[in-house]
Nucleic acid binder design. Structure first.
Lengths: 137, 137
DNA sequence: TATCTATGTTGACACATGTCGAAGTGGGGG
DNA sequence: CCCCCACTTCGACATGTGTCAACATAGATA
C-alpha cells in the first residue's frame, strides 16, 4: 500500500515495529496538556480561544480533513506521503497541508529513509473531542 | 444577566420555561444524522470532507469559538446577543459570526420578543466529538 | 403612528489562505 | 560521482474571510 516504483523490496510500512511505535509518540512534545476544558463548562478566554481555534481551523479545510482521516485510518496508524495521491490537489499542496496539520499539533512526522511518515497526535485530538462535550473516555 | 436598559421588568431569560425548553430543540431539523464515522475508521470521501470541514471551520475562528463557548456554557443553555459584549469585536461582527455558526448547524436561534436567543445543536456537536475518536457516549 | 432599542444586512476594504509550477533538499542506487 | 526519486520550500496568483461603519428590519412602548 504505497505505490512507489522505486526500491521494490524493503517494505516501508513494515518498519513500524512495536519499539518504533512506543517511542514514536512524543506527540506535540512541548505541550502535554493541549488545551482547555469542555466548551460547555465556562466561556473560553481570548488566549484559550486563539490556541484552540487554530486546531479546529486545521481541520476546517476539506483537503486537510481528508488527509487527516487518511492518516488516522491508515494501517499501522501512519501513512507516508506516497500513500496519498487521489486527494485532488497537487503534491506540493498535499505537503503544504500536511505541514499545517503538523504545525497545529494534530500530526507528527518522521523521516525513515526515503519516505516521510505521518501519524496522528492522539492526546491533542482527544482533547478536541473532550472540548466538544464528549466527557467519557 | 443581560445589560438591557430597555423594558426594565419582564426578565428575558426567565422566559425559558420547561415547555419552551422542550420545544426549542428541533436542532438542525433537516439533518438528523449530521455526518460521518470516526475519522479513524476509514478515509473520508470528498463530499463528506466538504460537509464536515465546514463544521470544523466554523469553530476555527477565535471569536466564533468564544461565542460558541459562551452560548454553550451560559445558564439555561442559551444566550441572547445582549449577553455578549466583551468579545472584542463590534456588534455587527458578532452577528456575522453567529450567523456563520448557525449556518454550520452548530447553533440555533429563536426570537422571543425583542431578543434573539442562541443555543447549541447538541447532536451536531456530539457528532463532531465522535469523529475525533471519542467513541464512548 | 412615531420612536426607541435590539439585531441583522450591505458594501467596502485589508488581509489570510489555497493552489500551482518551478526550484531546492535529502537520501538511496548504480 | 552522478542520477533518480520522495518530499519540501518558494514565488505568484486568485479567491476567501474578518472587520467595520452605515443602513435596514423587527418588536415594544407610548
Amino acid at each position: 500500500m504505497c505505490q512507489h516504483r522505486y526500491m521494490s523490496n524493503a517494505a516501508p510500512n513494515a518498519l513500524s515495529d512495536p519499539a518504533t511505535d512506543a517511542t514514536a509518540l512524543p506527540l506535540i512534545g512541548a505541550e502535554a496538556e493541549p488545551c482547555c476544558p469542555p466548551l460547555t463548562e465556562r466561556p473560553l478566554t481570548a488566549e484559550e480561544a486563539v490556541r484552540t481555534a487554530a486546531m479546529f481551523k486545521a481541520l476546517g479545510d476539506p483537503v486537510r480533513l481528508r488527509l487527516f482521516s487518511l492518516v488516522a485510518s491508515h494501517e499501522g496508524g501512519e501513512a507516508c506521503v506516497c500513500d496519498i495521491s487521489d486527494v485532488g490537489v497537487s503534491q506540493p499542496t498535499v505537503s503544504h497541508h500536511l505541514k499545517k496539520l503538523k504545525d497545529a499539533g494534530l500530526l507528527t512526522s518522521e523521516r525513515r529513509g526515503t519516505w516521510v511518515y505521518y501519524r496522528v497526535a492522539p492526546t491533542v485530538v482527544a482533547a478536541m473531542g473532550k472540548m466538544l462535550g464528549q466527557h467519557a473516555v
